Simulated assay, not measured.
Amino acid sequence: MGKVIGFELNSQDAEKAAQFYSNVFGWNVAEPRWGYREVDTGGIKGGISQGPPDYPHGTRLQIEVDSIDEAISRARDHGALVVRDKMEFDDFYLAYLVDPTGLGMGLIEKK
Rank of each mutant, 00 (worst) to 15 (best):
R84L: 12
S11I: 05
H57I: 09
H57C: 09
L107P: 01
D69A: 15
L94D: 14
R60Y: 08
P32I: 02
T59F: 14
G104W: 07
S22T: 15
G42Y: 05
V24K: 00
A95C: 04
A17Q: 12
G104K: 07
G58A: 04
A80L: 01
G51Y: 00
A80N: 01
S49K: 12
W27P: 06
G35D: 00
Y93D: 07
G79R: 11
L107C: 00
V39G: 14
G2M: 11
F92L: 15
P56R: 02
N23I: 07
R76D: 04
K3I: 08
P52D: 03
D99V: 00
N10S: 12
L61V: 15
K16A: 15
G104S: 11
E70V: 12
A75L: 08
A17E: 13
I48T: 01
E31M: 08
G35F: 02
D13R: 04
D69M: 08
Y36P: 07
F92M: 15
Q12E: 12
E38V: 13
G42S: 09
P100T: 00
Y96D: 12
D99A: 01
F7T: 09
N23R: 13
P32A: 02
K3F: 01
V39H: 12
V29F: 05
D66T: 13
V98A: 00
P100V: 01
Q12M: 09
G47A: 09
E64C: 04
L103R: 10
Y36E: 02
T41H: 13
M1R: 07
V82Y: 04
R60V: 11
I68M: 02
L61K: 08
G104F: 11
G106D: 04
L94P: 10
A95D: 00
P52H: 02
D90Y: 11
K45S: 12
W27M: 03
G43N: 14
T41D: 13
L97M: 13
G43Q: 11
E38M: 15
W27T: 04
L97Y: 03
D66R: 07
H57S: 15
A30K: 12
G26M: 05
A30H: 09
E64H: 04
D99E: 01
G6C: 03
F25A: 11
I108N: 00
D66G: 14
Y21L: 03
L97V: 14
P100I: 00
F92S: 12
G51T: 00
G102M: 03
F7A: 08
I68S: 00
I44T: 14
D90G: 11
H78E: 13
Y36K: 03
E8P: 03
A71S: 08
I48Q: 01
E88Q: 14
I44Y: 07
E8L: 06
M1S: 09
G51K: 01
Q12P: 10
Y55S: 09
E70I: 07
E31N: 07
R76N: 06
H57Y: 08
A14I: 05
G35M: 01
D13Y: 06
G79I: 12
V83S: 09
K45H: 11
D66S: 11
T41K: 10
E109M: 11
A17R: 06
